[in-house]
Simulated assay, not measured.
Amino acid sequence: MQITSRSLLMSYTMLLTALVFTIFFWFQARDVQAEWINVPPVPSETGALSFSIGDKQMAYRSFGLMLQNIGNIGGRSAALDSYNFDMLSGWFLLEDGLDPESDYVPMLAAYYFGGTPDETQLDPVIEYLATVGRRKGKEKWRWLAHAVYLSRFKQKDLDKALELSYILAAKAERENLPHWAKQMPAFILSQQGDKQAAKELLLTMLKENAEKMHPNEVNFTVDYICTRILDKSEAAEMPLCDAAK
């Protein structure tokens, strides 16, 4: 097949046009990058299952992985305090409906999203962890304990922490959990300045449960009363503290 000068000219013209278009497009699009659109809207459970052909575990794990990596886009990582935590709460509850037994999403909520530097964003996380932690189940109570921790130490909301600690203590009594969980209200009462209530709570625990407690737990409780709740003069007048010396 013979190539004519006209066909060559057309080929070069098309190539030049494509090159000019490519250069023009590059100048227009060179500053365009993937944008952080924040947490996407939460689908219904039916909508979520439609993405996994009705497989709850596939949906749970896929959306969990999405939550874990949601702020990493276009080679950049979004700061936790830029997340919409109210929208995240909806995802937590959706995932909880798909698999209420798994600890994957509670762990993400507690140890990843709970790390936000903006403590005002933590309310949805604390509410979710408290909901999960109230349930029966192996080690579920630890999420309730973490909700107390976030309220007490990150938000410094002692009233909320005390309210949650009473729920934790009641659960600890019913399910024979570690004694520090039962003692949590006393720790927070002491921090609030209500030393008398804290002392009475721990003394009652010693009176009713000392025989069931490990000696180390008894010693810790006595030491907490004598050195953290009472001052030196008050401790000197208390027989329990004298006996512990």
Rank of each mutant, 00 (worst) to 15 (best):
202 L>P: 02
143 W>A: 10
136 K>T: 08
82 S>T: 13
193 G>N: 11
172 A>Y: 03
28 Q>F: 04
37 I>A: 07
61 R>S: 07
20 V>A: 12
83 Y>A: 00
35 E>V: 14
217 E>W: 10
84 N>T: 02
71 G>N: 10
15 L>S: 09
91 W>N: 11
166 Y>A: 03
107 M>T: 09
101 E>M: 10
86 D>S: 12
104 Y>A: 09
50 S>I: 04
47 G>K: 08
60 Y>I: 07
21 F>V: 14
52 S>M: 04
237 E>S: 13
33 Q>G: 02
124 P>M: 13
209 N>M: 05
82 S>C: 01
137 G>K: 12
118 D>F: 01
152 R>F: 00
5 S>R: 14
102 S>A: 09
148 V>W: 03
244 A>R: 09
52 S>T: 10
216 N>R: 13
88 L>T: 07
146 H>V: 09
110 A>Y: 03
228 R>V: 05
17 T>G: 14
222 V>K: 07
12 Y>S: 08
134 R>P: 01
243 A>W: 04
82 S>A: 07
19 L>P: 00
77 S>T: 15
53 I>M: 14
163 E>L: 04
89 S>D: 09
231 D>L: 09
103 D>N: 13
155 Q>M: 15
61 R>I: 05
188 I>N: 07
70 I>P: 08
19 L>F: 15
100 P>R: 11
234 E>F: 04
30 R>H: 12
92 F>V: 04
224 Y>A: 08
85 F>K: 09
202 L>D: 03
225 I>M: 09
115 G>N: 15
238 M>W: 01
197 A>G: 02
235 A>W: 08
65 L>A: 12
210 A>P: 00
171 K>F: 03
165 S>Q: 05
122 L>K: 04
18 A>N: 01
117 P>T: 11
